[in-house]
């Protein structure tokens, strides 16, 4: 057995074969205080909760737990911090990799000779929040955000580009994504530098 896993094997003993053995087992179990240990554990926890404030309850709508970085909630579209322009370059990789085929986008050649994402939508009726889109995105443009409260009057409420894009007035609050697809802290080590003439 793999030592690292540190399994503890439970010794349940053999199944009693004779009625006498069975009787002995009943008596043994009856007079052991295992049942009272259970009672002790619960009463101990009750006192801890009541008097030592060890409750695990989060008063949910009023208090919220921090979302771990790899949590995969409704997608966010990030902007570039410097210019405020959306990061999405319209490469279509998310559309390609999406296993539930719920991403669709339209792109066009814009006036600044750039690829403009004219329409972008995720069908959240189909999305399974696998996170592939965020992982494949080369620009860290589409990421999973913290909006896990996804109850809505309409399924379409989250699905358009504008719904997911960081509001421009809240650009300063935009946080860098640390989940799937984000560069690892040691990413620099894996890259060879390209010489540049300037």
């Amino acid at each position: 057995m793999n030592e690292k896993q540190k399994y503890i094997m439970l010794d349940l003993g053999g199944t009693p074969l004779t009625p006498w053995c069975r009787f002995k087992r009943v008596v043994k179990r009856t007079f052991r205080i295992e049942l009272f240990i259970g009672l002790w554990v619960t009463i101990r926890e009750m006192f801890k909760t009541l008097f030592m404030g060890k409750s695990h309850t989060t008063k949910y709508p009023f208090e919220k737990m921090p979302i771990p970085p790899r949590y995969r909630a409704i997608h966010d579209m990030l902007r570039l911090l410097e210019s405020g322009h959306y990061r999405c370059i319209g490469c279509g990789l998310c559309e390609k990799i999406c296993i539930s085929n719920c991403i669709a986008m339209e792109t066009r050649y814009d006036e600044n000779q750039r690829k403009e994402v004219s329409e972008y939508t995720i069908n959240f009726g189909r999305c399974i929040f696998c996170g592939y889109c965020a992982e494949v995105c080369p620009e860290l443009a589409i990421v999973h955000g913290a909006r896990y409260e996804t109850a809505s009057e309409q399924r379409a409420s989250f699905s358009l580009f504008e719904d997911m894009l960081t509001p421009i007035d809240r650009l300063k609050e935009q946080e860098e994504f640390a989940g799937y697809g984000a560069p690892t802290p040691w990413a620099d080590k894996n890259i060879k530098k390209t010489p540049l003439a300037y």
Binding site: G90, C91, G92, K96, T107, R108, Y109, K115, E116
Partner: peptide
């Protein structure tokens, strides 16, 4: 065609 579609689509 410029920037309207990826070849793989």
């Amino acid at each position: 065609f410029v920037y309207t579609s990826n070849a793989w689509e």
